[in-house]
Amino acid sequence: MIDNLPYFVVAITIILGIYTILIRKDLIKIIMGLSIIESGVNLFLITIGYRWEGVAPIYTNAPSLQMVMPTVQALTLTSIVIGVATEALMLSMVMLIWRHYKTKDVRKATKLQG
C-alpha cells in the first residue's frame, strides 16, 4: 500500500491538471494546467524508476552489474527540459495574443473558426 502511494499522487496531479485545462477559461491558467500534468508525468517516471535497495550507478563505488540503470532519471531530466521550453514558447504566444487582442480569455480569443 505504502509502495503505491506515489501512484495515487501521480493520478491526483494529472487529474487536477486535466480539470484545470477543461474548466478554466484563462489561457495562462490552461498552460498552468498543462504544466501540472507534466509534473504528474515526471513524478510517474521517477516513481517507476525507483528500485528498493538498489545501488546508485556511480562506477567508483558500486559493484559491477548490480547497479540500477539510470534510464528513467535521464528521461525525466530530458522531459523537464522539454517542458521548460514548451511553457516558455506557449507563454510568449499568450503574450502576443494579449498584445493584439487585449484579452486572454479563450472564449474571446477565437478569430480562427469555421
Binding site: 485545462i21 489561457l27 490552461i30 498552460i31 498543462l34 500534468i37 507534466e38 514548451t86 514558447l89 506557449m90 504566444m93 499568450v94 502576443l96 495574443i97 498584445r99 493584439h100 487582442y101 480569443a109 477565437t110 478569430k111 480562427l112
Partner: peptide, 18 residues
C-alpha cells in the same frame, strides 16, 4: 499577423504538448 497566427501556434503547441 495581428495575433491570429499566435493563436493558431498556441493551439498547435498546447495540443502537441498534451
Amino acid at each position: 499577423d495581428k495575433g491570429v497566427a499566435a493563436e493558431a501556434g498556441l493551439k498547435y503547441g498546447a495540443l502537441s504538448t498534451l
